[in-house]
Simulated scan of single mutants.
Amino acid sequence: MKPDTTTPLTFGMLLFDEVEVLDLGGPFEVFSTAGRLARTEDGRPLLRVLTVAATGRPVRARGGLRIVADHTLDEDPPFDVLVVPGGVTTAVETDPEVLDWLSRRRKSSALTFSICTGAFLLAAVGALDGRPATTHWEDQEELARRWPDVRLRTDVRWVDDGDLVTSAGISAGIDASLYIVGRIFGEGLARRTARQMDYAWTAEGGAQDGGSGRP
C-alpha cells in the first residue's frame, strides 16, 4: 500500500498522574520527529501529536515531572490514533470519567496503541478481551490474573493485532512506535526517524497477528 501523504495523522496521548515519563516521552518523540521529517503535499507535518488529561491542572508524572496537557477530556479533541502509556494506573482504573472516555475513543480510533501498563487501562474497558496483547514483563502475571480473557503474549516485545498494538515497557514502546510509523508510512520513514533520534532501533521482536498499512 502506498502511504497517504495528503492527510495528516493525529496521535492522541492520554496523560494521568504517575504516568511513566518515557512511556509517554518515547512515543511522543518518535511520532513528533517523524512529523518533522515527513510533510503532506501542502507542507503540513504528516504526523502530529496532542495530549489529553482529565483536567487542566498539571499532571505529575513518575519522578515528579509536571506536564500540562493540550486538552481535557471534556474538550475531547479529534484524533486518529489513541496512545495509552503506562505507569502507576491504579487510580485511573477506577476513574469512571477516564474509563468512559477511553472506551468511547478506543472504538472511534482507527488504531489504539498501549505501552507497558497502559494495557491495564485497555483491559479495564474490555478492549483486550479475546485479543493477543503484551505488557511489561514485571506486570504480565498480574494482567493474566486480573483479565484472564486476554491472550497474553510473553515472548514478544510488541503485538500488532490490526487496530490494536500493545507493547512492553519503555524501550519496547519506542521500538513499537517506530514500527507503527513504518507500518503506516513505510519503513524508510521509520528508519529516518530512528536515525534522527540517534536511536538504535530494534526492528525485530514483535508479533503481527493481523493488519497492516494505514489504519
Rank of each mutant, 00 (worst) to 15 (best):
F79R: 03
T117F: 10
D70R: 12
L73V: 14
T89F: 00
W101G: 09
R106A: 06
W101S: 03
R153W: 08
A119Y: 05
A168L: 06
G63Q: 02
L102I: 06
L128W: 00
V59S: 04
V59D: 00
D161C: 03
E75C: 13
E141F: 02
E138Y: 12
A127Q: 02
G130I: 00
A123I: 08
I67E: 03
E93G: 14
L143T: 07
A123N: 06
L152P: 07
A133D: 07
T154K: 04
E93I: 11
T135A: 12
A172K: 01
A61L: 05
V125I: 15
T134E: 01
E75N: 12
V165N: 00
L128N: 10
T154G: 00
L143Q: 01
F113M: 11
G63I: 00
G87Q: 10
G162P: 13
H71G: 05
V150R: 09
S103Y: 08
V84E: 07
L143F: 07
G87T: 10
L122W: 04
T89K: 06
I170W: 10
L73R: 10
A91Y: 10
K107Y: 04
W101D: 06
S109P: 05
D129F: 11
R60G: 08
F113T: 04
T154H: 03
D95M: 07
G118S: 09
G63A: 10
G126W: 04
A61K: 02
L102H: 03
F113D: 02
L82T: 05
L128C: 05
T117R: 11
D161L: 07
D163I: 07
S114Q: 12
L128G: 09
L73Q: 00
A124V: 03
V98Y: 08
F113V: 07
I115L: 07
G162T: 12
G173C: 09
D163H: 15
G126I: 03
V92G: 03
E141V: 11
R105I: 08
V150K: 07
G162F: 13
D139P: 00
V98L: 13
L99F: 10
T89P: 11
V59K: 11
R104E: 02
R62Q: 15
L65P: 02
L121H: 04
A123M: 02
D160I: 07
